[in-house]
Each structure stands twice: as C-alpha cells, then as structure tokens.
Design a protein around this nucleic acid. Structure first.
Lengths: 346, 346
DNA sequence: TCAACAATCTAATTCAAATTAGTAAGGCGA
DNA sequence: TCGCCTTACTAATTTGAATTAGATTGTTGA
C-alpha cells in the first residue's frame, strides 16, 4: 500500500544525472541547455519505467498559479427548485474551463451558518484560493467587491454591470437592443398598441429590457397601453382583459415563469394566441418541451456568457486584456407561434 | 493596484516575530508551543490587516489540508440536456460542503481535448489539489482508480460499488430491498402477475433493482410475465398489449424517462392506469409537475447520498472512519395514483 | 550560586519542481 | 601552454507553509 510516488530525484538517480537535468529533459528544454540526446533518452526511459507523474502542487507553487478558477455566487449555486437561473451559465463556465484546462472552485464554505454569504467571512478571503473568480448573482455586496478589487484580486462579472463597470470586467447580454429589435418586428407586422408585463424586481437585465421597450415604442411611434409589474402568481385575468380592451394587440412578457401564467389566464378568458393577442417572451425558455405554447421569444445566450467569462478572466490574468474590458453578447430572436399580425377588425 | 498576496513572512515582519510563530498562531498551536497570548493577538491583528489567506498550493505540497473537496466525474458535470443524473447528487454535495465549511473543486481540466477524461491525463494528477475527492459516474476507469488508491489518495464513490468496494468507501442506495418492498406492496394489493421494463444498460443500480425484483417475485410466489429491456424511444405499444394479454396486472418501470414513454403508449392503446394496468416507477421523478401522471414510484435519496458522501470523506480524512466503510441509504416508497388493485374480472 | 527547568520564541529543514548561477572537461587558437 | 570558448551538465535557490530541533531568557530550588 501507499507506494511513494516517484519524484524527479528518483528518475535522476536511476538515470545517473541530477534533478535539474531531469527537469530540463521533461520540459523539453534540452536544446536550450545543451543536454545530450542520449542523456535525454536515458531520462525519458527512466521516467517511463518509474511511472513518473509531475506533482501539480509543486509546479503550481513555483509558478504562482493554480489553474483554479473560482465561481462565486451570493446564493447557493444548485438551488433546490427547478429553473435555476445559474444553470445555463454554469454549463458555459464548465465548457470554458474545460477548454482552458482549468478547474473550478465553488465557494460553498462562505455560505456557512448565515444564510448570507460573505466573502470576507472570519476575516479571510477564501476567494484567494483561486487565481481569479467569476462572480454571479444579483444581490448587492458592493462593499465586499470594492475591497476585493482594492486588494488587486481579479474577477469577472456575469450578467450584471451596475457597479461592475467600475470594479472590473463583465460579460452580459445586450438586452436593450434585443428588445428594441423585437419591437421593430412587432411593428412591422402591423401592431401599433403594445403592453408590457415585467417582474416586480429591479435587476439590471430587467431595467435594460424596459429601456429598450420604451425606446422602441418612442422611435416607432407605438402606443404603450400598459406597463405593469407582477411577481409569481400575481398575473390576473382581469388585467389582460383590461389591456385588450385598451386596444393592445401584443403583449411583451419579461420572464418565462410569468409567461406560463399569462397562458393560463388567457386560456381562462377564452382568448386566442396569437389570433386575438400576440405574446412575446423576453427571456430564454429552458425546457421548451414543458412549455404550453411554441412561444415567440428572445434567447439570452447564457451559456456563451459563462464560457466567455472564463476566457475573459484568463485574458485579464495573463495581462492580455485590461481589467476594465467588458463584453456584451447579442440575444437572438426565436420566431415561434405566438406572434402574428393584429386582428384586422380592431 | 495588484498588491502581492501577503505571505506569513509579511505578517511576521509586521508583528515583529518569525514566520514559525505566525504559522503556529494561525494554526492554533500556541498552547502547545507556549506562545504568549499577546503575541498571538498581535499576529492575528496583523494577519487581518493584511488580509492574509493561506496558499493552498504550498499547503497541499506540504501535505496539509485545504478544506477543499474534489468532485470528479468521468463525464461533464453539467450536461446540456435536461434530466441530469448528477444534478440532485450535486445539490446534496453542495449542501454537505456548506455544512462542513469546505469548498468544492470541480475537476473539469481533465476533460480537455479527449472526450474521455483521464485522471492522469498528460501526466498530471490534478486531484491532489483537493484534500480528497468524491467520484461520480458509471464509466469504468478502474486502473486509474487503483493507482490513485495506491498512492494513498482518499476518495469516496457515490452511486456505484462494483470495484469501489475494494478501493474505498462508497455511498449508494439500497435498491434491491426497495424493489422487494415494492413487490410486497403490489402483492398485498392482490397482484399475482407482474412485468418488468428495464433499461438496456447494465449499470449497478439497475442490476440491483432486477435482483430485488426477482427475489421478490420468487419469495412472494408471483409470476413474471415479462422482463424486457428498452432504450430511449423503444417502448412499443404492442409489447404492452402483449404483456397485458399475458395476464400482467402491474408493470414495474426502471427509469423515469421510459415511464413517460409507457404512459404515451398506454394512452394510444386506450388502456386505463391503474384500472386496467398498474404502473410503478423505480426511480425518482425530478420534476413531478412535468409528469403525465401522479406516478406511484420509488424515491432514490440522491441528495442525501451527496451530502453523506461529503461527511464520509471527511470522516475518512480525519481518521474517524476506516477507508473500507460504506453506506447504503434507503429509498422511499411514494404512493401515487398509478397503483391500484388488479381488475376483478381477470 | 549554579544547575534545572519553564516560558517563548527562532533557525533550519521539508515538500517537488523550476530556474539561476555556476562548474568541469575538452578543444582550439595564438 | 595559457586563456577562452563550447559542451554538458550540477549546486544552490526559490516558492509558502508546516515542522523539527534548537536557542535564549529568566526563575527557582538546593
């Protein structure tokens, strides 16, 4: 049991050379240092014979880097409910890490005891374990992030940019332009009166969508019949009735969860989509097979955002990119069956 | 900007002591070595002031602990499809890690280039960065695991036990007993003729279920009308018809995916569940709201398995548990609406 | 008053690999 | 035959933390 792992020194003894020479040979630097090809061969043979495997830890210690990328969220990463906001982003981060040959560290320890996660829990910054980190989540802990940045720690944000812009690089989606694009498609089909149903929260991605909506309505000369906020379980049939009575022929819905609630209420009213009312979702649909309709909606490139965040972090760490760089990825319009021309009678 | 990471030596200088003393103070060994409480306080203050965090790499090199738990799978952890086998287990692992105050390292780097993941890929064993690892997945890489174990590396398996038993501790579910329990419930309701629909693969958890099924049938004197294997998309209505004609009044289905296919075929046949045929699932249902029926089925405690694996790993690392220990968690029977008494006419 | 001892702390070493600064041996020109 | 340059290597150092083996100072009992 527990046969000691062979070290470079063991190879050196077997080949009758020094540890230095072994290191040089194994790293292909024989030419630079004029190592005899025969010696090199002896070393390689000895290494193979002993089943040598470099010790990552020693290598990392010397090199100053771990090849560890931290992933930090202020909430648990794998929530118990379905429809994890992070899920797709995590898939992207994993793919990015695979490509870059790095491992991921999920900072779970800091969630301990308190429901809240503090980076500087007990006065230590665990994030430092990793070479740099990707920060997810909407919750605001700006003071901690400022301190992190002050300490020279490198990180990249995904999905938000409020304070991020002043603190470090970020990757997010171009929500405003995407929604403006939706508006012009809607306009092109003949719609002139539109309603908007958003979430009650004021997270940046939502605010930007609203910005795009208003800008689009203004530019295209469309009338905003209603702009209303609802939480989960709060969509009311009477509101939809009212909006339609008000002349709206199309409804933009910010969140996918609310979208399904809208479908239920519309069903209750006996209204036809898109015959009586067109409905467009402004977010990705994680599981289209579970959706009630073939929704017309936007695709937010969450997976690409995750993958790009990894690349960006490594670029910053390697000095290939200044730490103020940011990137915005485009959303795609997915045509479905819930956007049509407005009913001619209206 | 980019202030170099503080080392113990920096703390030592600030506090006016040696690096040794700093190390002792930070590791709570002041009592053993008679360090003055005032000195200790000075050191702690200096450490906080500098924002000191131990260097994982140096510690790992020395053989120390890092409060890092590795998670290794031979396949990507976050698969692109829905219905991730790992998902629930990962949730459990995360919860376990949170409770234990440890962080998780997801070993993604080894998936690089080759679709296959080798621990000793490119001659480096990254696992050593973590204190120990939890190993998931069905794929067989026994030679690598044997080597890891020989090197004294500690790990715990989740969900399998074939070779695991000889290599280290494992946590898995008690499938056979659970299925036997299902059989006795079915028997108690009056069923005497039963059919079994399994997956085509021969993974351990499936083999155990079949074992439990056969043992139950034998003990209870029930007739096995059919025992058939199907892959995704291979369930045929004719098979169900045939099985029912053969007298089967209840069908046990190994996998949740196949369960839904069975529902579709049964619908096509105009057969009533459970009036004409009772159906029992032998696996968890991740998203009951997306299920076509209120299935009667087994709950595999995947989340507990993950959480328990973390505890077990730490027990082994701390020497509280011998490294041959294993644990089997019970599955729960979830009564639903798809198991009833057999039709009296039969 | 001196050895013994406790109380406090430190120098030196270790872990495995990478790198810097040399060294030894041989050849060649002047 | 002295000095200089190659060729082909090696000794020593570095990385950050933990540990082993001391070292220093002061106190106390005989």
């Amino acid at each position: 049991m527990a046969a000691a792992r062979p070290r470079q020194l063991d190879i050196a003894k077997l080949a009758g050379v020094s540890q230095t020479t072994v290191s040089l040979a194994l790293n292909g630097k024989t030419a630079d240092y004029g190592i005899n090809p025969e010696t090199e061969q002896k070393i390689m043979d000895a290494a193979r014979e002993l089943g040598y495997v470099p010790n990552v830890t020693a290598r990392a210690l010397r090199g100053g880097r771990n090849r560890l990328i931290g992933v930090h969220a202020f909430e648990p990463l794998f929530p118990t409910g379905r429809e994890s906001y992070y899920e797709e982003i995590l898939v992207g981060i994993e793919q990015g890490a695979v490509r870059a040959g790095h491992d991921l560290v999920l900072f779970t320890s800091i969630h301990q005891h308190t429901g809240q996660a503090n980076i500087f829990h007990e006065g230590r910054n665990r994030l430092r374990i990793a070479d740099g980190a990707i920060i997810l989540g909407f919750e605001q802990h700006d003071d901690e992030l400022v301190r992190l940045a002050d300490e020279g720690y490198r990180f990249v944000f995904v999905g938000r940019r409020e304070r991020a812009a002043t603190l470090g690089p970020y990757v997010s989606a171009e929500y405003a332009a995407a929604v403006r694009d939706v508006m012009s498609r809607v306009h092109a089909l003949g719609h002139r009166e539109v309603a908007y149903l958003g979430l009650r929260d004021r997270a940046e991605p939502r605010l930007e969508r609203r910005e795009g909506f208003r800008a689009g309505a203004a530019e295209l000369g469309m009338a905003v019949v209603a702009e209303t906020w609802a939480g989960a379980g709060e969509v009311e049939a009477s509101w939809i009735r009212q909006v339609m009575d008000g002349g709206a022929t199309v409804l933009l819905v910010e969140s996918t969860g609310v979208l399904e609630e809208v479908a239920e209420r519309v069903d209750e009213l006996g209204v036809d989509i898109p015959g009586d009312l067109s409905v467009v979702g402004l977010d990705s649909i994680t599981d289209p097979s579970a959706a009630s309709h073939d929704w017309t909606h936007l695709l937010v490139p969450r997976r690409e955002m995750g993958a790009r965040a990894v690349e960006l972090l490594l670029d910053v760490l390697d000095g290939r990119q200044e730490p103020t760089h940011h990137e915005r990825l485009n959303c795609t319009f997915r045509p479905g069956g819930t956007l049509g021309a407005p009913a001619p009678g209206v």
